[in-house]
Amino acid sequence: MLELRLVQGSLLKKVMESIKDLVNDANFDCSATGFSLQAMDSSHVALVSLLLRSEGFEHYRCDRNLSMGMNLGNMAKMLKCAGNDDIVTIKADDGGDCVTFMFESPNQDKIADFEMKLMDIDSEHLGIPETEYEAIVRMPSSEFARICKDLSTIGDTVLISVTKEGVRFSTKGDIGTANIVCRQNTSVDKPEEATIIEMETPVSLTFALRYMNSFTKATPLATQVTVSLSSELPVVVEYKIGEMGYLRFYLAPKIEE
């Protein structure tokens, strides 16, 4: 028996809108730790890792570890039917072939339940090693989204370089080139507008903008995004989900020519 009650149901709506176009089908894993997902895009270039810790739920019952295969597009369709202020409860029976999403309006005057068929998904779980990143950039998520969107109108790839000067996003295309440099800025009044750069070693990596733009669909989840880079390793683009967890996107770099 599984029953997870999330008062801030909009978080789950936002998570689904962020990943449904990147990943088609995925297993949601439920354990005492929390509700999690790890899945790759169909080209095996990007990996999504989601964790919603059990403590973040108002009610969390998971009698035994459960893996539920879901079509993310269909799950997103169902969650779209929940109001932004609704409480969302996820229910499933052990060994059952469906999951139920229950939506309750804040004043309890409307209760809806949507039942979705589960599917068998043969997915490979990857071990993500703990890494000390050479550079970690924390910046406003809206700013990061704007940069990725703007650069993708010029080129297909972005070269991200972190130096003492700051973080530089560069692209080139048929019509020309573009460079955007963001410097560390901790003097702003609001912490969510800060840009903080921690650099051990200068690092420079190239990534496909198509994927970066897809990751920025998670912008509504968090005011800040963390971009962690190490040479010869996938970049991690992380959006914190309130106090309860995170949505991380890993993207393999392009090979430098």
Binding site: V45, E124, L126, G127, T157, A252, E257
Partner: peptide, 14 residues
């Protein structure tokens, strides 16, 4: 065009 690497070449099956 820079060739694209796959995520599976960095992270191993667990």
């Amino acid at each position: 065009v820079n060739p694209q690497r796959q995520i599976t070449s960095f992270f191993s099956k667990s």
